[in-house]
Each structure stands twice: as structure tokens, then as C-alpha cells.
Design a protein around this nucleic acid. Structure first.
Lengths: 311, 311
DNA sequence: GATGCTTACGATACCCGTAAAGATA
DNA sequence: TATCTTTACGGGTATCGTAAGCATC
């Protein structure tokens, strides 16, 4: 048994049992992949994969039980690497974040700027993607920190910390009749064509819930992944936009007006998400405490490495 | 990085940084051990060991932080082996117990007999040793289950379950004057020369505590590791024995009488101890539930693999 | 001087990649 | 037929053990 075999096992599951893809992903020959799997099964004396003819279809029962152990070992090898880099190259290294457009574009710039001043030699990788993909990237160990409003809660293998809170607000052209309406109600809004986020993005579910609770069916004529796109179409007069309030900048968004609606929609909380057991460099911990000053490094470590260090 | 290097790191710490011993323990050449350590340090870019000249003296800070991760990885490799044996050879295998003389001699025979009938093909290894050594063996993964009254409580990396309760009692030759004394008190007993267990064995601390609480200083003329030795000297008339009550068999111990003293000494609890994160074969779980029928397999697993499966 | 660590060196075994053949969709 | 997996084979590398050279105690 060696690490390469374990990497192949993990990658085989991730790539849905296509050994050719596995080989490409691991930069090795496909024949070796095949042999490694067979060797491992021989050594353990157990079939790990369900086969039909020559094709792999899935995991056997022992394979299923083996997988989490394999993943933990590989996680620990990464931890060893990060741990030694922590000592060998204090403040240089790599920090990978996965986050949604809203955070990347409107919230993180301040934090990132400060971080880059403190750790100029840390390469910062900002991966922008959807909430569910953030979870995937965290699980795969491809990013250190995830930042999202949706999908990261309630996952047993992730740890989350509240980052900041925000609400949805309306955005309209600055000559729009809604500007003079007081008070703004869901009923009034529902009379206009609406433009807002896709399902699963930036609290869309909260918007739908608010209308549903009021017994209204809003006329969402367009949905987009990010506020910039929404703004563009609001500017064209295609409808009233509903975006995250932090996504509005008075200076940059000339010609548009933000209409706060504090009571209409639920408060959203954006979270920092970490993978349990994923070792974090000092600068990664610092990034987190920069975001949430109320947190201490010890609290973070205690949450990421629960209780006993398991072993 | 490979598994052999990690094994060498672990063993180097265990063998107090004597690489020659490490090589013997791992059945390999000492030169390779030396090279492996150097290679690993080179690969990680960190010195893991403190050296003076050619001698290794201890772990550096990064080495200290690395060690628990290394141990967890090696624990998981054992878990992989056990897990696959679980499937490849259902009811055959190896079960290693570490226990003290009292349990091995007087308590376990019943359980072991039943176990052997159920799992005739499982090789049962019964290692008899002192309480502190039981903890060491559990930690080293050399035994699956520890059974002891002392030393196993309060260790964060161990899980314990109460096995059974017992009390100390007096043992005397069957013509001894104490047989007719009613009620037995510590004061009365303290007038006789006593023979009992060594410190750290079979609840000796409870015996001392009982006399201390009563303001008495008993005259312990001999101490031994096990009840059989104590009995032998009681038989010779050298004193009154204090042994664990389960260690007395009326038939086998002809010529001796057990005098119960329910109120004199505290109740002792003997525990089953397991190492957290140590995978247990089905038959090992069965052994435990045989000992403690109130326990379910799920409860045991939940305690050994806490919360999230970490990974 | 005895013990313990490192380095050098040769044999072995392991791992990888190419290529051909067989199976599957 | 195109894709995918297995098997066979050769080259390269890593690992291991022996032996010699040094450092430490």
C-alpha cells in the first residue's frame, strides 16, 4: 500500500470510475492506474470496486467503508505539507478562497487589500463559483476557505462562522416611480416586472419565501448570477432589480438608485466555511480573524480539529 | 513521502531517538532508517529532529506538531488492514487483549470461553501486564481492548466502558480468629499484619484510602502483584489477605475463607478501554457487548469514532 | 573502546510509460 | 467504430542491505 494507490482510489471515485480521466488528473499512465488498483485489492484481499466485465461501476461495501479512511489519510498528507511549509517559509505560500460573485466583487476587496499588505508574498487565489461548488472545492481540499451565503450550513464535515449580515434591496433607474412610494411593500413591488438572482444564488430563496409568505406571485422576468448583470438590465428599463444591498455603489452606479427595504426580506448571513481537519496556515487563520475580529485563532482551531485530535 | 518514512518517524520517537533500535524494530537496515529520515526532512524542507553532532536528541517544534498527524495516518493504515480483513476473512483473525492478572485469571475465563465457542477461528492473544502498560499498548495499537481498574480513566485518547463492579474482601486461613468477629471493622483488621496488592494494582489505592480515612496506618507486611501470590502467603499464616472478592473460589481455595466486608472499602469499577479511532472487527465489538450486554454496537462505534468521521 | 550515525555502493524490487490486445458501449 | 481496460514488456528509479568510515559517549 502506498500513497499513490490511495490517491488513485480517491480520484477513481471522484471521476466516476473512469480510469482514463483518473490517469490524466494524476499525470500518469492509465495502465499504471489499472495495475495499482488491482495491486491494492490483491494486497487487501478484498474487491473494492464493482465491475461489469472490464468496466468499473461503483464501490463495493468494503470499498465504501474504506473511502472515508483513504480520504482522511490523504487529507493528513496535505496537512503535513502545509505544516512543514508553515515552518520552512513563514509568510510565503498559497491561500485559496472559493466565493460567490457578490463577495468577490463587493465585500472581499477591502479584506483582500489589507491581507495583501500584511502578507505580500502569499499568492492569493480567488475562485469564483456557485455555492454548491464551494462545498465541493472545500471537500476536495482545493480551497482553504469558502465564503457563501447558501449551501454551506448544515454540512457535517464543514465548519462555518458568521461573516457579516446583509439584506436585499431594490434597485431602479433614478427616474422610477417607486422612488417616491412610501412605504414600500411587497404588494407594490409585485406589480412590477422583477429582475433578480438565479435560484440558489445570493439569497434568492429568501426573496421567494418573502413573496410566498405574503401570498404573492412576483413576476420575475429575468434572473442572473450576479448583481452586475441585474443592474445592466435594470438600467435598460426591463424591470425592478432586487439585489444584495452591499452590491450597490452610489458613485459607480450612477443612473441607478438603491431603495432599502429593511422590513420586506429576511436578514441574510454570509458565512466563512472551512473543512474539518484541514490544516490552516497562520496567514489563513489571520485572514479569517481579519474577517471576523470577534474570533480567536484558538476558537478556529478548536472548531476545525474537534475535541481530541481523533487519533 | 511514503509510509515507511512515517513508520520510522513514529518509531524513532518511541525508541527515544535510537535509530539502531528503530531499525531492529522495523526489521530493516539502520542505514536506511537514517537515510529515510534525512530524505523526509529534505522533502518537507524542515528539520524534524534536534541533533547534536550525529546523535538525535528530540523533536523540533515542527516535528512535535507533525507527530500526531503521522500517528493518525499510521493508525488509519492499520484501520484499512483491519477493515479489509473484516471482509476477506469474516470470522477469522486476531484479537489482542491487555489486562491485569485479576481479570485474566478470575473474570475473563467465562467470557473468553463463550467467545471462543462463537469465534473458534479467531486467535485470541491475552497480554497480561500492569495498568499503565495497558494504556501504552492501546496507544501503540498493539492491543484492541484493554481491561483494567486503574489508570485507564481520564485519558483523552481512550474510551472506557464500565465492565463490572467489585469490592475488596479479607481472606484468611479457615481457623483464623477473625472469622468469628462481628462486625468486621477497619480497626480490627488493622491489628493484624496484612498482605495485599502492590501500589497501582487492583485497587490498592482504594485500600490505602479507606485506612487513611479512618485514621489508621495498616501494617502491610507484604505486597504482591496478584491474588494467587497473596493467597499463598496467607495460607502460610503470614498475615491477613486483602484481595478482590472475585479472586476467591471456595472449591479451589480449600483451607482459606473469604470474609466479605461490604462497607469497609469503596466499590471498584473495572473498565473496558479502547483507543479512539482504532477500527474494531465485528468479533471485537461482539466481545465487548458480551462483556457489557447493555452496550450496543452503535454506541461503541459512536464513542470510538467521535462525531463526524472527521474527514 | 563500545555504541551509534552517516556515506558509499551494488543488487533487487518497484513503479512508470509504451504498445498491443481484448472488452464494452 | 470509438472508447476504455487489461496485460505484457522494457527502462528508470527508489529502496534495501552490506560494509566501511566517523562521531559521540
Amino acid at each position: 500500500m502506498n500513497f499513490q494507490q490511495l490517491r488513485i482510489v480517491r480520484e477513481t471515485v471522484r471521476r466516476h470510475f473512469n480510469l482514463t480521466e483518473v490517469a490524466n488528473e494524476l499525470y500518469t499512465a492509465q495502465s499504471g492506474v489499472s495495475k495499482h488498483l488491482k495491486d491494492l485489492e490483491d494486497e487487501l484481499g478484498v474487491e473494492l470496486f464493482v465491475r461489469r466485465g472490464k468496466r468499473l461501476l461503483g464501490l463495493t461495501e468494503p470499498g465504501k467503508q474504506l473511502l472515508p479512511i483513504v480520504e482522511r489519510i490523504l487529507l493528513d498528507t496535505q496537512n503535513i505539507k502545509r505544516l512543514s511549509e508553515q515552518f520552512s517559509q513563514q509568510d510565503t505560500g498559497h491561500l485559496a478562497l472559493a466565493t460567490t460573485h457578490t463577495q468577490a466583487r463587493y465585500v472581499l476587496p477591502v479584506v483582500v487589500t489589507r491581507f495583501k499588505q500584511t502578507f505580500p508574498k502569499v499568492h492569493l487565489e480567488l475562485r469564483q463559483c456557485g455555492p454548491t461548488e464551494i462545498v465541493t472545492l472545500l471537500r476536495a481540499g482545493q480551497v482553504d476557505i469558502g465564503i457563501a451565503t447558501e449551501a454551506v450550513g448544515g454540512e457535517a464535515d464543514l465548519v462555518t462562522f458568521p461573516f457579516y449580515q446583509w439584506q436585499h434591496a431594490l434597485i431602479v433607474p433614478d427616474d422610477h416611480p417607486l422612488i417616491d412610494v412610501q412605504p414600500l411593500t411587497l404588494e407594490v413591488i409585485a406589480d412590477y416586472p422583477l429582475i433578480t438572482y438565479h435560484h440558489g444564488y445570493t439569497g434568492r430563496s429568501r426573496i421567494d419565501a418573502a413573496f410566498a409568505r405574503a401570498g404573492l406571485t412576483p413576476d420575475v422576468v429575468m434572473s442572473a448570477l450576479d448583481a452586475d448583470v441585474i443592474k445592466a438590465y435594470v438600467e435598460l428599463g426591463l424591470g425592478v432589480g432586487i439585489i444584495a444591498a452591499p452590491a450597490y455603489h452610489p458613485a459607480r452606479d450612477a443612473g441607478l438608485r438603491l431603495l432599502d427595504a429593511p422590513s420586506l426580506f429576511e436578514i441574510n448571513t454570509t458565512y466563512l466555511a472551512l473543512r474539518r481537519g484541514h490544516y490552516l496556515r497562520d496567514y489563513a487563520l489571520r485572514f479569517i480573524t481579519d474577517c471576523v475580529p470577534a474570533l480567536s485563532v484558538e476558537q478556529i482551531k478548536a472548531a476545525v480539529f474537534p475535541k481530541v485530535a481523533i487519533a
